[in-house]
Design a binder for these strands. Structure first.
Lengths: 348, 348
DNA sequence: AACGTGATAGAAAAGCTTTACTACGGAGGG
DNA sequence: CCCTCCGTAGTAAAGCTTTTCTATCACGTT
């Protein structure tokens, strides 16, 4: 019987397989085999080992296993902001599916900063992530394809995949890049038709910041449904305050220019509603408002918001399913659905 | 010059330090030293190595480093539900601080299931997490201390700490357990005083489920402020629907029993508001309502909700700061603050 | 001229696990 | 009675990095 260097493990780290082997009076190979259960071991030996394992509270060191390529790689998700309800829903889908598949879930937030995103992708490669999931709109349409291709290449070396969620897919698809999207444009067109069919003809559009793919796609959807109608577009960040100020400014410049406001997100709609209210305009009697995303707070707004439901959680789950699948389709499109509440009514 | 087993790294994994050493014509020790910069290396050698590194896109394998104890352990946070706005805020604080300290952030969700929590703590120990952060109320006050002590012990072997966030601290503090809390009771008492001072005397309390520490503490706060007033307590889960039904039931049983509803969370308040509205009761004219947490949607509710602001994000950041500090105080208490909006008015 | 010294670089061990390979005793068959 | 094979268990290598220890060379010193 070989004795290991450290016979009595006192202050030092966790129990190792050596400690268990010593305690049970067997070799480390036998311990490993008992735990794996993939090799015949005499019953008496087995119980002895198992007893030592519980006594020492032993667990195999994941990093050693990972070094051998035995342990599975983690799933990483890079969010703009966990606090955003739609990001959170997506993260939940990712986490749930990762847990089901016994994968660890790594999380990082980029605050919309491309440099930070790059740094995080790099970190995830070091961790040998099996998948890196990138949700949210993409900026800077020029460099974007190269950047994503770079990400994919970087991950390919460690056997990982990159999943674009709600971002434009790569024109020239990398073998390990997957795109999961929802029909942003169709959803926008569908909500736009709600006030349109209620009789509105003059619209204020707050699609979100220029250059962000999500905002552009939603704007395109609004426009396609609203051909012929009078349309006023104002750019504003995806935030409550920005939307409020945009509505106020629009009201100042075109006091009678619109009877309906189509917002790029539900939080923008919240800001728009507040702006309207602060000018004494009631929704939906005076002005109708729609949002996008169907965040949990949408139905508690004043009035309950008519918006577009996006299957964020399903997207997250699907992202990891596809990333881990043997052969995955390079791209997948999910449906959106408009949900009618109380924020749209016929114009006065 | 020693040649490694794998001379041309084709399909196989990422570049190793051996590959770099080969490419630069030096030993692996030299490569390591160039990268670490903690040992003199001739300038010519240095640039040669660096060139090879960029050419091969090399990054040190984290798992090998972790095996040597060189790489720092990750920070883990175990949420009930990422989608909950307060959990999300806390997670954001954790992630931000972890990023600042160049730690990886692991995330897991328990869905309030103790078994799943146990499994996740175990997983995090395997990952040798430097800290495991447990936010949210604690169930089952009987077994709770032992369970937490077990968590702490389990983590101590790998040099990790456990941080209880908004949970009751351990009576007999483990050396590696930290508790970060906010003054739940004082906050509850403070909001309760708002309708009280407005003249209300008959209250409906919906503190949340029995046995959950958060709900119990809030209830205690409500009660302490409301001595002498008429108080009706109804238990309901921390959900919108449960709160709505509870309000409806209370209305049925005691039609004139209360003029103000004090809710355990803001989402419960949303449900309560809907219940009231569905019976034709206006808020705040007929019934006043308060919440707790000050989630982002609170101010967009109808009417904007008077509630208690809890510094969740700061709590998250503080949790990792303390967990990583050399010598941390075992417990820390944060302040809450009531935020007055439009959901409380004098009784009719 | 012999020797110490500083600068630089390589060899090797350690860290923990899995698994292919080797070894050994006993049972069964020729 | 000898050989073979099976059941069981140990040995050692591999996986990748960091760091200690050792080695070499060229100088400067006495």
């Amino acid at each position: 019987m070989k004795r290991t260097v450290r016979d009595k493990r006192g202050a030092g780290g966790p129990a190792t397989i050596h400690d268990v082997a010593n305690a049970a009076g067997v070799s480390i190979a036998t311990v490993s085999r008992v735990l794996a259960g993939n090799y015949p071991v005499a019953e008496a030996t087995r119980v002895r080992v198992l007893k030592a394992v519980t006594k020492l509270d032993y667990t195999a060191n994941v990093h050693a296993r990972r070094l051998l390529g035995v342990a599975p790689g983690p799933i990483a998700v890079l969010l703009g902001d966990i606090t955003g309800p739609s990001f959170a829903a997506l993260a939940r889908g990712v986490e749930r599916e990762a847990y089901n598949r016994e994968r660890l879930c790594l999380i990082g937030t980029t605050d919309g900063d491309p440099e930070r995103e790059l740094a995080l992708v790099e970190t995830m490669r070091q961790q040998q992530a099996a998948a890196v999931i990138l949700p949210g709109g993409a900026w800077d349409l020029d460099e974007y394809p190269q950047q994503m291709a770079r990400y994919a290449r970087s991950l390919r070396a460690v056997g990982g995949r990159i999943v674009l969620c709600g971002r434009p897919p790569l024109d020239e698809p990398a073998p390990n890049a997957i795109s999961v999207r929802y029909d942003n444009e169709a959803g926008a067109a569908a909500v736009a038709r709600v006030p349109l069919q209620a009789g509105h003809r003059r619209f204020l559009l707050l699609p979100g910041p220029a250059g962000l793919s999500t905002a552009e796609e939603r704007l395109a959807g609004y426009r396609s449904a609203l051909t012929g109608a009078e349309v006023l577009v104002r750019r504003a960040e995806f935030h409550r305050e920005a939307a409020r100020e945009a509505v106020l400014a629009a009201l100042d410049e075109h006091p009678t220019g619109f009877t309906a406001v189509l917002c790029g997100t539900d939080v923008m709609a919240a800001g728009a509603l507040e702006g309207l209210r602060s000018r004494g305009l009631r929704c939906p009697e005076d002005v109708s408002v729609t949002g996008y995303d169907d965040i949990p707070g949408a139905r508690d707004m004043n009035p309950a918001l008519t918006t577009v439901r996006v299957p964020y959680e399903e997207m997250g789950a699907l992202a990891v399913t596809l990333a881990l699948a043997e052969s995955a389709p390079a791209t997948q499109l999910l449906e959106t659905r408009v949900v009618i509440r109380d924020s749209v009514a016929p114009p006065a």
